[in-house]
């Protein structure tokens, strides 16, 4: 995935059984953002793979004051890349679960 300066990782082990996953996001390189991010913390949140989109979460993070609205795309892309990787991995382990 492209280096966006925003890192997103699983906050818990993914066994591929739940549609909701816990993710943790933090800024690795503030210079890649247009606005100044709030604080210097890791933001943990849950994400429903079936019902939600990365844009939903990015928008809520901006509305909650974590990021400037000009960074909506970079936050959304960072989440989308990680979610795509999780879904790709789930596709691969699905036969083993069945």
């Amino acid at each position: 995935a492209e280096d966006t300066g925003v890192r997103v990782e699983l906050a818990e082990e993914d066994h591929g059984r739940k549609s909701t996953i816990a993710l943790r996001l933090w800024v690795e390189d503030p210079k890649k953002l247009k606005g100044k991010p709030k604080d210097n913390g890791a933001i943990e949140f849950t994400f429903d793979l079936e019902k939600e989109t990365p844009d939903d979460v990015a928008q809520e993070m901006i509305e909650s004051g974590f990021f400037h609205e000009s960074d909506m795309k970079i936050v959304s892309k960072s989440i989308r890349d990680r979610v795509a990787l999780i879904q790709w991995r789930r596709e691969r382990i699905r036969p083993a679960l069945q």
Binding site: W26, E28, G41, A42, I43, E60, S64, G65
Partner: peptide, 27 residues
């Protein structure tokens, strides 16, 4: 300890914790 919780009006909960120094990229 130093956890902060922010709840968005849509109901999503964000829990903020310090990032360990080892996870931050050196500039």
């Amino acid at each position: 300890s130093s956890l902060t919780q922010v709840v968005h009006s849509a109901g999503r909960r964000f829990i903020v914790s310090p990032v360990p120094e080892s996870r931050l990229r050196e500039s």
